[in-house]
């Protein structure tokens, strides 16, 4: 077991190093290499964090959705660990998205926060998954807690299509999507000097995400092994 842990630790180390290199590259491109936006000026550089953060959070909650569905269907602990791990990291990236958006909103819109449909739905997404984490930590009966959280994870994920479509369905202050547009490819919508740092930062965030997820998943597995060992000792 020590050998497996050593191999997995080494692989995670390489993955972490790759994530770090891509983060440094993304930072350089976003802060130094990219030109300022013609209308927003330097503040637009916050978008190199804001868009990758929310797309990473979407991916994370999609994994919560997949893990939760599989857990309710097959009752395998691995699926529950995946959902729990993804939810924890998803909450971090959603909170960061809201903070970045708020800092960008102050010089651009003149306010830190407004009850715009997209902003409000994103805040609701954060509250749902913060509730998911609280449910996991407060429920004493573990299997029941996992099942209840799986249902909440599935319901919570349904908020993401609403967030994405909110800018089309309601009159919002938030602009329409720049990357995930149904009518235009990203390179038709954003000039390459601005799209390059965005894509680099997106790649960096995704690498970082999978690195953090592998660590968090391993933590979940180790905790399960500890519980199983303690249970077998009690008997």
């Amino acid at each position: 077991m020590a050998k497996i842990s050593q191999i997995s630790g080494k692989r995670n180390g390489y993955f972490g190093a790759l994530a770090l290199v891509s983060i440094l590259l993304g930072l350089y491109w976003g802060l130094v290499q990219a030109p300022p936006d013609a209308y927003q000026g330097e503040v637009q550089r916050i978008m190199y964090l804001h868009i990758p953060s929310i797309l990473t959070a979407y991916l994370s909650f999609f994994l919560v959705f997949v893990g939760s569905c599989l857990y309710l269907w097959k009752r395998e602990k691995r699926d529950d660990i995946l959902a729990y791990s993804a939810a924890e990291i998803g909450v971090l990236f959603t909170a960061l998205t809201i903070i970045e958006g708020s800092i960008w909103g102050k010089p651009t819109w003149g306010v830190w926060w407004t009850w715009d449909a997209r902003l409000t739905l994103t805040a609701i997404l954060l509250l749902i998954f913060a509730g998911y984490l609280m449910l996991r930590s407060l429920t004493e009966e573990e299997n029941r807690g996992a099942s209840s959280a799986a249902v909440l994870g599935i319901i919570g994920f349904l908020d993401i299509p609403l967030i994405h479509m909110s800018v089309y369905w309601w009159r919002t202050l938030h602009q329409p999507p720049s990357i995930l547009r149904p009518d235009k490819a990203p390179w038709e919508n954003i000039a390459w000097p601005l799209l390059t740092p965005l894509l680099l930062n997106l790649a960096a965030f995704l690498l970082l995400y999978f690195y953090l997820l592998s660590l968090r998943f391993r933590l979940g597995e180790v905790n399960e092994e500890i519980k199983a060992l303690k249970l077998s000792r009690d008997f």
Binding site: L27, L31, G41, E42, V43, R45, I46, L49, H50, S53, L92, A95, L96, I99, E100, I103, W104, K106, P107, L208, L212, L215, R216, L219
Partner: peptide, 25 residues
Amino acid sequence: MGAWYFVFLAYGIVWSAILIYWLTL
């Protein structure tokens, strides 16, 4: 407050939060 103040504030908060989470994990 200049535009760079907001940029560095955002980058500082994001990377500090991620670093703290990684160390805790």
